[in-house]
Design a protein around this nucleic acid. Sequence first.
DNA 1: CTGTTAGCGCCTTCAG
DNA 2: CTGAAGGCGCTAACAG
Lengths: 336, 336
Amino acid sequence: MRDVDKQSGIYAVAAEAGVSVMSVSRAMRGVDGISAKKRDAILEIARRLNYVPNSNARALSQANADLIGISLPTFANDVFADVLEGTRGTIRRAGFSTVIDTTEYDPEAERRWVERLLSWRPAGLILTGVDHHSDVRSMLRDAKIPTLETWDYDPDPIDVVVGIDHVAAGAQLGTEIRKLGYEKPAFIGVARGHDARADKRLLGLRSVFDVPIARIATKPANSFRMGSEAMHQLLQDHAPDVVFFLNDHMAFGGLIAAQSQGLKVPDDIGVVGFNALDLNTVLPIPLTTMQTPRRVMGVTGARRLLARLNGVEGERATALPVTFVPGATTRLQNQR
Amino acid sequence: MRDVDKQSGIYAVAAEAGVSVMSVSRAMRGVDGISAKKRDAILEIARRLNYVPNSNARALSQANADLIGISLPTFANDVFADVLEGTRGTIRRAGFSTVIDTTEYDPEAERRWVERLLSWRPAGLILTGVDHHSDVRSMLRDAKIPTLETWDYDPDPIDVVVGIDHVAAGAQLGTEIRKLGYEKPAFIGVARGHDARADKRLLGLRSVFDVPIARIATKPANSFRMGSEAMHQLLQDHAPDVVFFLNDHMAFGGLIAAQSQGLKVPDDIGVVGFNALDLNTVLPIPLTTMQTPRRVMGVTGARRLLARLNGVEGERATALPVTFVPGATTRLQNQR
DNA sequence: CTGTTAGCGCCTTCAG
DNA sequence: CTGAAGGCGCTAACAG
């Protein structure tokens, strides 16, 4: 038998209000089954006592149906922030609360994150990318937790995926650039394996050009500086007529570096980014880049996940289109 | 009486291993009181069954001593990401796990966040800034949860604070700029009340200049574009000789805008940012700005909080110094 | 509308 | 070293 006069939590409020704990529980949750008068009195007392319900107890006594975990590679990239904005807004409006964490592009860290989150018995999970630690897939399928993968694309996702086919995007970008007459491409990004999506885009690029593509890898650091330093390094040994960058930030750094070496852009060398960041809209020389539908991706993905949460079975894998954005850092047309 | 053969959780593992749940509990936590042989056998079975302990149950049965909540205004700002990096790294290495969320500069959203986090009974909380919803202070003090405030400074924090005195920083910046002979300052930022720190810096600036400082407020959007648009707007009605911006991003946008109107920087007009972002290191014209010790702030704050968690009483309020960084967007010296 | 009862899954305590 | 009993704070299900 329980000590009904315990000092803490719902019992304290119940004692103070002279009602049962169930009435307090009903009042706090705002569910039916309690008179308005009693509810108001209880809420008033709860406020006075600074009572905060214990989510752990609540989650334990019923299926925790309102928590969604989101994992990103990093916060230091506007790209993920954009997707996240779309995702979170949609999810919140549906009444779920979110928990966010980053993996710093480390699959093992992502595995630990999945484990930690599963221990909270969330309603669903959102992962960035489709390349995970080998345990992750079985952990998630075993736990039967609806899972959304975003940003990347895989025809056979863990559960559902809404993203971009980066191989195709790379090929599309390469095709456009090649049309402009460029034939000595180079690629600047982080080392292979550090960014699966960039690796895929390079794969796509390589499928388009007949020549090998020089690849300069940099240590992860500030993107602007990385782009700048890698460009200097590249130009020591190579004479590319166009350089593809991992993203717009690095491309911008590379652009400045090329100009500081006296190269004329786009006449001497073309510079191509990826992502069409807002930075671009104010640059004196707008970058040639690829527009990725980040907010739409976030919203679409969130909706797909919410549908799954409601037991609706829909399309499992969706690849969103990307758009070539010609800027002033590449030639306007083939000038050969 | 309990059904000992329940299908889920620790009981399933115990049944499979032919031991009591306590042995499983001990094995999973890696605590003493169990033979190595039995522990290994249990762990093996747990892995095979994909057993994930239920954190809710764990947190309910004991004080949840390893969760720290972190709240930021937004993810769309490198500044907070830098502080966060320092904070999280330090906290993680100490064995705590973190939960992060954003408030979008909305005090009411922050209040809800505090409430939600308190419901999880965390070990500690980290808030950005010192200006909160009026309830927050009492909620946190009442819950007796160690709380760190960062980025801003207040001599009487909720619990402990490690940050920057933005009024003093504004005054310091204004003093340096005034030394260079500028006398018709303007300020470009978001509307008053949307960024308490920026308001404080403007206060500091105003304490230095004798003349009124024109203030252009923009709608929150992409910083580069905001800076650019506000600069155009400013130049329609005013003829400042120096413009202070909310941050480096906006300053960069403003710089481009000024140049596009044919103004020479720094001869016709000075442009001043805030934060000394890495962007600056590759810009063809480095911005005059203020260096803020963001990573150090994060690390120092985290250490202070960890000390509090261990019951150590130390300094409650710490203001970190900021450094003036003269760039090429202001004159080198007073030329009058 | 209101209250009582019996767990949710785990860990602390204490006895073997 | 091992296990049985009870409780953490809350809510579903049932009774009044």
